[in-house]
Amino acid sequence: MKYYSYFPGCSAGSTAIGLGLSVQAIAEPLDMELIELEGWTCCGSTPYGSLDELEAVVVAARNLALAEKTGLDLVTPCSSCYVTLNGAAIHLEDHPELKRQVNEALAVANLEYHGNLRIRHLVDVLLNDVTPEVIASKVQQGLNGLKVAPYYGCQLVRPHYGSDDTEFPQSLDLLVESLGAEAVPYPLKARCCGGALIISEQSLALGLIRKLLDSAVRNGAQCIVTPCPLCQTNLDAYQSQVNSKFKTDYNLPILFVSQLIGLALGIASNSLGLNTNIARSVTIDRLIKERGRLDNGGGKI
């Protein structure tokens, strides 16, 4: 059993509830003990940094200081939290005066951040600590060559806080293949889905989402998997809006990679929050039905 400090991020309990549920569900079978960081708050987030970049660093630093006290690596399944927390840690390292000011503020809650914390993405932990070999050895329900498009989005690989390639990454491909699925190569696998601008600049973001769906489908994908809560929401919840805007007819299941892993490990689909996914296709439903566990939640678009 390996122990980690766990930072779910805000969306893992709401818009990306399927992420939160599935990560919790796969942790034990994969011998990970994810200990939720006591008292965590928002990571600091891109919008916060855009309005007040110094204050956003303090918000992040409080979480970093809490995590540092545990002595464990901090793991987050959210790509955006991963970038924000790492970015703040780097700012604090590069600017000693800022670090002093931040620590002066943290002191009101008896906290101090020293800079000895490793902030990791769940995908990094799955790939390098758990390893695809061990995952493969625990597969109960092989995915029989299901054609999966691994969608990295941006922040898992950029800026370069991990070790994967920033434009043609492989980590998700390796995880997907360890489950007996086929990782479909497609050129846009690490391109942007529009992020939070789906709210303020919707038509711009819908255009980017359409390109991604198109690239995956053209290359034979039966479903897309991603680790990122915002990418999943954009591709899944807004898929019908893409269809009405561009007169397309995508109906592609968009799963969290942790949900796909859970399915292969034989975990019940409700425990993985699969009924909180919106866009579904026959493929995943049939896969679930074949396993004899009918998913009675969620609707179809």
């Binding site: 309990g13 709401s14 818009t15 990306a16 509830i17 399927g18 006591e38 008292g39 965590w40 708050t41 928002c42 110094l54 204050e55 303090v58 918000v59 409080r62 809490l66 000011q101 931040v102 002066e104 503020a105 943290l106 002191a107 009101v108 809650a109 906290l111 929401t233 919840a237 009924n275 909180t276 996914n277 919106i278 969620g298 609707g299 678009i301």
Partner: peptide
């Protein structure tokens, strides 16, 4: 659609560390 899929809770969850966070932000300012 998000609400029916349990993805849009209507009531905010107040984080445990919220009070500490507010004090820290105030001090930082």
């Amino acid at each position: 659609k998000l609400f029916l899929h349990r993805r849009m809770p209507l009531i905010p969850e107040r984080a445990k560390g919220k009070e500490d966070l507010s004090r820290i932000i105030q001090k930082f300012r």
